[in-house]
Write a protein that binds this DNA or RNA. Structure first.
Length: 483
DNA sequence: CGAGTTTGACCGGCGC
DNA sequence: GCGCCGGTCAAACTCG
């Protein structure tokens, strides 16, 4: 395939060697420069002042003999300057275009996700209708798999009102227009506009009310579970959490975001306290995270993210944010739901072991994806290359250009989960970026808690074998362990 | 002095 | 109804 290229290269080399004016390397700073100068001049044969430290730099710097030459040079200079100006203008134009493209891409990406989530919601609404028609006697797998309790329509409408209020009062910048708000209300939906003002500035009463209102929502969600869980679940109304397990000596992995600690608690079953953080990169950013050391292995730091950022993120932060938000949206868009639902859900790919991935969610208040970056591997990227395409080829033949039937054997759980990751391009990309950064960064003691890049997660060494192992994580429903 | 952290108290859900 | 538990608040405290 590369033969013509090779031939062309070798021909080019031959041309160079056989040329009557071969290229020569000139060391301008060598002590033998004088000699070099002379030889260069000799070769060119047109230098009259022998022995002078003249340097041939490839430009025709011969003395200008006539007025005509002067004029020519002047014209050339003017032309060059004009060209330079044009190039500069072009550069500016391109830069602004790039900025515009970046903005458009961000908006489009958000919109795409919103649409996908909306479709999933519509689908589940349809499912709801069907289920309620069938009657309550027919138990659905959703009852076992639904990670979060459901709500009655009444409550749903209240929440729509809240959404409106949120829209009216939101102090988010332009970039977080309706799209962002919808995303937040989708993934978190427990963050009303009260969050738009920092906790420290809220009056005690409003603060209480404001902070409790999300709680009330959750309570409303969790009520009525036993009665009509199968008929009233609203997928996009659920909270999703993304948990990252990483080895780190530091008290907190640095993910590029700024966090403010607002509480600490010693949770049952773990002597290590759990710290609660809020994102402070923008006013009212709903993202929160919990940081806790693993009880079994204290070198493992478990960071749980919740919600979507409503502000632009620096590159270092966007890797983690993309990963978590994509994982969360993947989770919410189907991976924790029943097989049937999932297959037809907006995620658009079959998920043969969907229920396997979601089994643990029934006992957890929120669906949680756990990214396990604690396992070591000689070459995690290689494993990822081996595994990701396997599932991806089966699930995304169009994308990957693979035509024909899927591989023969039923997929392993690992493949299935890998497929879930693969099916969400943003997640895959983010994950790949994270792992790439891992590979690039030597394992260190994780220099300090806050700020910096996501390489600390990397330092915990990621790898790409996907296994299901949520049992050791009390709040996980799905674990992607990169081994 | 402002920003961030600590820590005891409070609240609501949930199981018994 | 009571107690446990997770999550949050906010005053006090620390730090730069």
């Amino acid at each position: 395939m590369d033969k013509p290229l090779d031939m062309a290269v070798s021909r080019f080399k031959d041309d160079i060697h056989s040329s009557t004016h071969p290229f020569k390397e000139v060391d301008f700073f060598s002590p033998n420069r004088r000699q070099l100068d002379q030889s260069t001049v000799d070769d060119e044969g047109n230098n009259s002042h022998q022995g002078s430290p003249a340097v041939s730099i490839g430009l025709n710097l011969l003395p200008i003999n006539s007025q005509e030459d002067k004029e020519k040079q002047k014209d050339k200079l003017i032309k060059l300057r004009m060209e330079l100006n044009q190039v500069r203008e072009e550069n500016l134009r391109l830069r602004s275009m790039l900025d515009q493209l970046t903005r458009s891409y961000t908006a489009l990406h958000s919109e795409l996700r919103r649409v996908m989530e909306q479709r999933a919601q519509e689908f589940f609404q349809l499912q709801d209708d069907k289920t309620s028609l069938r009657g309550a006697g027919e138990s659905s797998t959703l009852q076992f798999i639904e990670p979060c309790p459901t709500r009655k329509p009444r409550i749903t409408s209240e929440n729509f009102e809240e959404d409106n209020i949120e829209g009216e009062h939101s102090s988010s910048p332009n970039i977080s227009s309706s799209v962002d708000r919808r995303m937040i209300s989708f993934a978190g939906r427990e963050f009303p506009q009260v969050e738009a003002s920092p906790a420290g500035q809220m009056s005690p009463s409003s603060c209480r009310d404001g902070s409790r209102s999300p709680k009330l929502l959750t309570q409303a969600e969790s009520s009525n579970t036993s009665t009509d869980a199968a008929s009233d679940h609203q997928l996009p109304r659920r909270r999703a959490r993304v948990s990252v397990r990483a080895r780190s000596e530091a008290p907190m992995i640095s993910d590029g975001c700024q966090w403010r600690k607002y509480g600490q608690k010693t949770a049952k079953g773990n002597p290590c306290p759990r710290a609660y953080y809020r994102c402070t990169m923008a006013m009212g950013c709903p993202v929160r995270k919990q940081v806790q050391r693993c009880a079994e292995d204290k070198t493992v730091l478990i960071t749980t993210y919740e919600g979507n950022h409503n502000h632009p993120l620096p590159p270092a932060a966007s890797v983690m944010a993309n990963t978590t938000s994509a994982a969360a949206s993947m989770l919410l868009s189907g991976s924790t739901t029943s097989r049937d639902s999932l297959t037809a859900a907006a995620s658009g790919f079959p998920f043969p072991y969907g229920s396997t991935m979601a089994t643990l969610s029934a006992s957890t208040p929120f669906p949680t994806v756990t990214l396990d970056l604690t396992h070591h591997s000689a070459n995690p990227l290689r494993q990822m290359q081996q595994q990701l395409p396997l599932a991806a080829h089966r699930l995304l033949p169009g994308v990957l250009g693979v035509v024909g039937p899927a591989p023969r054997q039923p997929p392993t759980v690992a493949e299935t989960v890998t497929a879930a990751i693969t099916a969400d391009p943003s997640f895959t990309a983010a994950l790949a970026a994270a792992i790439t950064s891992v590979m690039g960064a030597p394992r260190s003691g994780n220099g300090g808690g806050g700020g910096g890049s996501s390489s600390n997660i990397a330092a915990s060494s990621a790898a790409a074998q996907v296994v299901l192992g949520a049992s050791q994580f009390p709040k996980s429903c799905t674990t992607f362990s990169f081994n």
